[in-house]
Amino acid sequence: MPDFPYINARVRAMRGRLLAPTQLEDLLAAASLPALIQALAATPYGHDLQEALTRYEGVRAVDDALARNLQRTTRRILEFADGPPHRLITILLLRWDLANLRAIVRGRHAGRSAGETLEAVIPAGTLGEGVLREMAGSPTMTALAGALEVVNHPLAPALAAGVAEDARTNDPLAIELSLERAYAEYVLRQARGAGARALREILTAELDAANVKTALKLAPAGLPDEQRLRFFTPGGALVTDRLFLDLSDEGRQARAWARLRAQGFPVKELPRDLVAFERTLDAAMAATLAQRYVRGDPLGLDIVTGYLTMKSAEVANLRLIARGVLLGLPRELVRREMVRV
């Protein structure tokens, strides 16, 4: 049964195929998008890019190639894992399932066609393309929930409950919020035991970050407490429901921020610009996760976590570079937005 030392050795070999910073700079200096695509074809993304160019062109082909490559990467890691390591890696990948379920629910609720809905899906999680296609093509929301239940997905009960509440209240957000909470509860419940400590730390930190971002986004709306509390996801280490309510109230925000800082939240300044704040927070979290590759437990999940973080950052950076070259954006702006891990 493959265990973490074996899996980590395989992942370290995959790490060697990530692009160096100098290669990214060379791509950023490409004179045009066709030149960039040609240069990208000479990297490990070449095979996916060739396939993508048979279906799309330009930036769309680059996006598709990067998405397919990420999907192949996650599938490969799952394939050479088994037993408890497979379970932990599956938990890590469940976030993609959540993003895909969100997209499909929105698409079906808005009456979009299956094809249009699938445009918003990236099959990098545990749900395969076949299941996603079937769900996207479901005639009703109840059928959609049924399709997820058939594959015994852990989020199936939450989806069914959310669909029932939406039918009663006509509130599509009810489905998404039900999924968010169920995802948090499930992954935290699964991430127990000595071997899952690293995963639990990652998940609670991510929940704290998500709750802080949500609270700051809600603050300008001036909603009453009970309406704001709907958007709180329990399970983080730092952010309680009380702190969430204070952060999402402009009058109480400054004091709440001081409490958060005192507990060790990675961003020090209370943000004025939410976009810049999210960029800083995401960069800090990505850097922390990527550091696990170097400083984390070499016999645990840290190597896989660190590698997937670096891989996701590389994919985001390549998408950014492609758009920067296409639109002629200033290179400094592209460099500022790039995720450095």
């Binding site: 918003a120 990236i122 998408r319 950014l320 570079i321 758009r323 920067g324 995720v339």
Partner: peptide, 11 residues
């Protein structure tokens, strides 16, 4: 363009 790049076209 930045949002599509960082979060992905799908998001």
């Amino acid at each position: 363009a930045v949002a599509k790049a960082v979060e992905g076209r799908e998001a």
